[in-house]
Design a protein around this nucleic acid. Sequence first.
DNA 1: GACAACGTATAT
DNA 2: ATATACGTTGTC
Length: 764
Amino acid sequence: MALSLSGDDEEYDSESEQQRAANRPKPKVGTSAAAIKLPSNRSSSGARRRRTRCRKCEACVRTECGECHFCKDMKKFGGPGRMKQSCIMRQCIAPVLPHTAVCVVCKEAGKEDTLEEEEEKFNFMLMECSICNEIVHPNCLKVNERRAALGAVSLTRGSRMLTGSQKLIVHDDLKEMLDSNKDSLKLEAMKRIVAMIARGKNASDLFPAVVKNVACKNIEVKKLVYVYLVRYAEEQQDLALLSISTFQRGLKEKSDDPYYSKLLHHIKTEEEDEDPYEEEDEEGRVPHFRGGVERRGRFGDPEDEADERDSRSALLNPSVKTPFGDSDQSLCSSPQAGPSSEGGSETQEKGPRRKARRKRRVPNRELSRELSKALNQEIQKTEDCLANENRQPLKVEPQTENEEPQRLFRNELGDQRPHLKNKEMNGTPWELRHFYPSQITPLGFNRSTPTNRPVPPHSPPKCVQMERHVIRPPPISPPPDRLPLKDGKSHVIQREVWMKIFGYLTHQELCVCMRVCKTWNRWCCDKRLWTMIDLNRCTSITPLMLSGIIRRQPGSLDLSWTNISKKQLGWLINRLPGLRVLKLSGCSWAAVSALCTSSCPLLRTLDVQWVEGLKDAQMRDLLSPPTDNRPGQLDNRCKLRNVEDLRLAGLDITDASLRLISRQMPSLSMLDLSYCNHINDQSVNLLTAAGTTTRDSLTDINLSVCNRVTDHSLNFFKRCGSICQIDLRFCKQVTRTACERFIAEMSVSVPFRLKEDKLLQKAS
DNA sequence: GACAACGTATAT
DNA sequence: ATATACGTTGTC
C-alpha cells in the first residue's frame, strides 16, 4: 500500500530519514543531525520506539557463541567492533517495548503485572499501534472513546477513533506538504494519503491538492498520485478523471517510462477502445484476486504462474485492496481472509456498496487490467512492508505466559489496519494450507525406503532476505479465556478444554479450524499444537512458510524430501533455538551443508538419510568442530555433539565417517545405517571399540540391508553395555543361527529375543 | 558514562 | 541482494 507505507514508515522514518539522507554522505555525522529533528510531525502520532530484548527467551539467556559473524566482530572476541550486532544465537525471539515506554493517553507504563484476570491484563498492557506507532493501554482507548460520546463501541472502533481524531490535523498537514516544493514532503504526504485510502478513509477532499502533483518529477510521488487517482476515479466511477489534461501532461513528461507510457496509451485510446467483452470483463480483471480455495486447486499450474504473485498479494491483503473497490467477493470465501471474523464482517459491511459499483462497470477492460496490475503492485509493496514489519518486533512489554499481545491487539483492532490484519491473520492459514498438500505421505523410519530416490524439485525458490527479521513465536496460551458469543456472553467451555480438543486434531484440521473465527484462529496457533511440523515432501518451501515455522517454534521439524535451500535452512536453524528434531532426508547436500555453519547445540535427532552427495568428506564437515581456533574460541566440540538419534540410511559413507561419529557424538543412542553399502564388520568394530563413547551409549542400531555386514559383527555388539535393538534384517551375510547364538550367549547378562528374522531385541 | 545492539543507510 | 557501518536508543 501504499499502501507501501504500511503506516510503519509513516512517522518514524520520514523525518529522520530525510536528515539521515542529508547527513549520510560523510561517514561521521555531526551531532547536529539529532538536533534538526522535526518534532512537529512526530507529535501528531508517536515515533516508533525501538524494541529491546526480552531477556527471558531461550536466545536471550544464552551466552554469546563467539563463533558467529557478529561475535567475531565484537571487541571482546578480538574484532573491530564496528558492526554492533547481537550474537546470532542470542537474537531475541520475542523482543519487547523498552521499559521506559508509557501509554500515550495516561502516560503510565504497562500494568498487566498487577492484574490477575486475563482480559484485564490485556486491557492494561502496553500495545503499539502499527499505523501511528502510538503506545497505549487498550483500556485507555476505550475510555477515550466513551469521552467522545461515541456510545458503546468496540475496541476496534476505539482505535479508529484515535486515528480518526488526527484526521483533520493530518489533512491540513498533508495539503501543506503537497504544496511544498520538496519532493520528500510530497512523497511523505502521498504515502500517508494512500495509506488512509487503504484504511478505508475518505480522502476525496485532498483531490485538488493531489492533482497538482500529477506533473511531479519524482517518480515515487507520481506513482502514488496515480494510485490515488485510480482509486478516486473508481470511487467516482469517472474514468474521464483519468484523462484529465493535467494528468496526461504529467504522464507525457515521463513518457519514456514504460510504466507510464503504457498507461498513457490506454488512456488515450480509451474512448475509441470500447470494451466489446463486457461480460468477460469480470473474468478479465478478477484473476488477480481469486480466492484461496480456487487458487489451491490451481496451485502449481504453470499457466497460472504469472498470476500467482498477484493473486497471492491480493490474498494477503484483502482489506488493503478493499478500499479500492476491486473484486472482493472471492475473498469472503477465501480461507486466507476468512479466519478473522472481523475480516468477514468488514467485507460484508462494504459488500453492497461494492456490488453496486460493480454494476456500473468500468468500460475499458485493458485499462481495468492495468489498474488491477498497478494496484497489485502497490499491494505487493505492502506485502513487502509487512515482511519488513517482522523486523519490528511487535511484542509488547511484559511477557506473561499469555504472550503475543500484539497479535491480539491487531486482531482486535484489525479493521482499519489491513496491513496488520493481513499479516497476522491470513499469513498463517495461507502458509499452512501449503504445508499439507493432500498427497503428502510421510516416509516412515525408512522401512519402506524407496528403491528409486524421489527427485526433489530443483531450483529452490529464492529465499528472501530475512536475516534480521524478528519473527515472534506464538503465545503459549493465547487469550481470550473463553469464546466470546454474539450476545456478549462467553461460551461455557474454557480455552484449555478447547485446547485439549484441538490436540486431537491433525494440523490439516487445525488449519480448517483456524478459519472459523479469530478466537479459534488464535487458539489454533498455540505453540503446543505445533510441537512437530511436518513438511515432508512439500514441493516448495516458501519464505512465508519459513516465517510460519519460526512463529510456531516447533521442537521437531520435518523437511524431508523438500527443495529447501542452504540459505533457507541456515536461516531457520538460527532461529529455532529449541529445535530438537530435524529431519532432512532426501534433501540435497547443498542444503544440508547449512548445518556446517550453524550451531544447533540442542539438536537431539538428525535425519539425513538419503541425502544426495553426503559422503565421508561431507560427514567430516558436518561433524568437525568450529574452525576458529583463536584464543577465546574454546568450544572445540562437535557441532552435533548432543545428537542422540542419527539417521544415515542410504549414504555412501565408510569407516572414516564412523570413526568420527564414535569420537564426536558421545550421546549417540540410536544409529540408522541401513542401506549403507560400505558399512561392514570393521565399521561395527569401530563403533564398539574400547575407548569410544558409542560403545556405551548405543541402544539401537539399524544395519538392515547392509550387505557387507556378517555374523562377525554380532560379536562386537556383545561389548555394548546399553544395546537394546540390533536390526540386521535383509543382511545377506548374517545368518539366523548367528543371531540365535548371540541370544544364547547374551542370556547370561541381558536377555534378547528375535522379534523378526535377524531383528534382535532386548527381551525386557 | 559504558556498554549492547536496533534499525537503517550505504557499500559491494 | 547481501554485507557492512554507524547513529542512536535502551539498560545498567
